[in-house]
């Protein structure tokens, strides 16, 4: 089938078998599209969360989705949240707070965190732990991941302008045009 969807702000049009796993498709899109190797695979059975993506803003597992299920959707992966030059506040906090060790779970973890912070700008540590409970990490013991998400939430609440600049920069980089993956201002105001 010819599959059309949006990936990290860009339109993607690619020929694929409809029953190809979404994780395989995303990791190996082929020219002219850049592969999103930040979507990892750790188990293939929905148990580890390394393949986490946002689909229309919802945290899903790309190892348990078929290519056909991406049609017309907006898919955002960790590399779509931000880049090294213009990291998302969550990614910056992950680096600053020591949430990254081997890093193989980290892109998926960042996606899970982004999904949480869209809905809850002031999560408690238990809320954070629940939100990342589908994402296994074997290195960190999760403490610094929770620290990082807590700090990112604080930063996003207290300094939405800084966040906005980061977003603008990363969106420019991605030439994104459509809907943002970030929490809406309305929700942000709740805190």
């Amino acid at each position: 089938m010819m599959l059309l969807f949006r990936l990290n702000g860009q339109s993607v049009e690619v020929e694929t078998a409809p029953d190809r796993r979404a994780v395989d498709l995303l990791r190996d899109l082929g020219a002219p599209h850049p592969d999103v190797k930040d979507v990892k695979e750790g188990c293939g059975t929905g148990e580890c969360g390394a393949c986490s993506v946002l689909v229309d803003g919802v945290h899903r597992l790309s190892c348990l989705m078929l290519a056909a299920q991406l049609a017309g959707r907006e898919v955002v992966t960790a590399s779509g949240l931000g880049s090294e030059a213009a990291p998302h506040a969550i990614q910056r906090a992950f680096a600053d707070h020591g949430a990254v060790q081997c890093g193989f779970c980290t892109p998926g973890m960042a996606v899970a965190a982004a999904a949480l912070l869209q809905d809850n700008m002031a999560p408690g540590r238990e809320d954070i732990r629940r939100a990342i409970s589908g994402n296994l990490c074997r290195c960190t013991g999760y403490v610094m991941i929770v620290d990082a998400i807590e700090a990112a939430a604080g930063k996003m609440r207290s300094d939405p302008s800084a966040l906005h600049e980061e977003r603008v920069a990363s969106r420019k980089a991605a030439k994104s045009s459509r809907k943002a993956t970030m929490p809406s201002r309305k929700k942000a105001g709740k805190s």
């Binding site: 969360g49 945290h59 899903r60 597992l61 348990l64 990342i132 589908g134 994402n135």
Partner: peptide, 9 residues
Amino acid sequence: LGSPPIRNM
């Protein structure tokens, strides 16, 4: 049930 992404799917 499961985990957040499992509950989303």
